[in-house]
Design a protein around this nucleic acid. Sequence first.
DNA 1: GGTATATAGTTGTAGATACAACTATATGAG
DNA 2: CTCATATAGTTGTATCTACAACTATATACC
Lengths: 151, 151
Amino acid sequence: MPSPKSIGKMVSVIHRYGHSYFDHEFSDLDIGHGPRNFLAALFCREGMTQDELSESLMMDKTTTARAVKQLVQAGYVLRKRDEDDHRYYHLYLTDKARDLAPRIWDARSKWTEVLSKGFTEEEKELIYIFLDRAADNAAKFREEGFKLSPG
Amino acid sequence: MPSPKSIGKMVSVIHRYGHSYFDHEFSDLDIGHGPRNFLAALFCREGMTQDELSESLMMDKTTTARAVKQLVQAGYVLRKRDEDDHRYYHLYLTDKARDLAPRIWDARSKWTEVLSKGFTEEEKELIYIFLDRAADNAAKFREEGFKLSPG
DNA sequence: GGTATATAGTTGTAGATACAACTATATGAG
DNA sequence: CTCATATAGTTGTATCTACAACTATATACC
C-alpha cells in the first residue's frame, strides 16, 4: 500500500478497516473473520467442496482447509465425503450457522453502506463495476504468472 | 470478503493478489512486503517519525515499529532520536534504500497499470476518486467507533 | 492389473497485521 | 517541585494468509 493516495493504499485501508469492523461487530463469536467469510460463502451455495469454496472466494486452498477446520470444530459446518469420489468433502451448514446468517448479511450491508456513503446510485454501480474489472485484471495477471499480457 | 461479487470480496482479491505480485517481484530482497511499503512511504517524506509514518499509511503503530526494526536491521533506514523531544525517532534513508526506489516505483506503476487495464482515462480517474472517498468513509467510520454518523 | 499423472485436501512454515498492555519521555496543574 | 496526564514507541499474543511439500484418492494408458 503505497504512500501518497494510490489505489493500492486505498484498497489496503478498506480491506484492513473492514477486517477491524467485522471483528468488532462479531467479537462475541467463537470463530474469527477468516472462517466467517468462508461460512458466508457457504450460505450462498451449500454443499460445495473445499476446492469450490476456495475458488468462490479466490483464496488459497490451504487457507480454506484451516478455516473449514475451525468451522467444523465450532459446530457451524459438517463435512461429508463424496460417495463416488472419496477425495472430495462436501460442506453443509448446521442450525448454529443458519441462525448466524442474518447477522452476517446485516453487517455486510452496513459495511457496504458505510463505504458508499455520499455516493449517488449511479456511482455505487460504477465503483462496483470498476472494482469487478480491476479484480478480474488482477486475477488474470496472476494466472499468467505476473506477466503482462498484450493489449 | 463476501461470496458473490461484493465490494468487500473484490477489495480482498485486489489486496491479496497485489501482495502476491509484489512478493514475486521482490523475492530477491532481504525485506518483505510490509517493510517495503513503509520504506516507500519514507521515499515520499524522509525524516518522518514512526507515528507520522503510521498515520501516512493508516497503519497501526505497532506494525510500523516492527517494520522499521526490520528496515533498520537490513540497512535501509537509520533512526535518530529527536534532539528536543526524546520520545521521537526520525527515520532516514540509506543509499541501499535509495538504490531500491526506482524498482519499487516501477513495480507500483506496473500494478496500477494491470489493475486499470481496459479502463479509459476518465474511468481511471473515477475509480481513484471513488476509492479515495470509500477509504475516507471507512476511516471516519472507524474513528467514530464503528457507529454510523447521521447523513 | 500396474504404473504415471492429475486432483482434493493437509501440514509446515513464515510474514503481515491489529489490539492490549507495557515503558519511557514530556507537559501541565497545583 | 511533584504528581497526573498525554504521547512515542515496544512487546506479547492471536489471527489471517500464502507457498512449498506432503498424503490420499482417482483416472488413463500400457
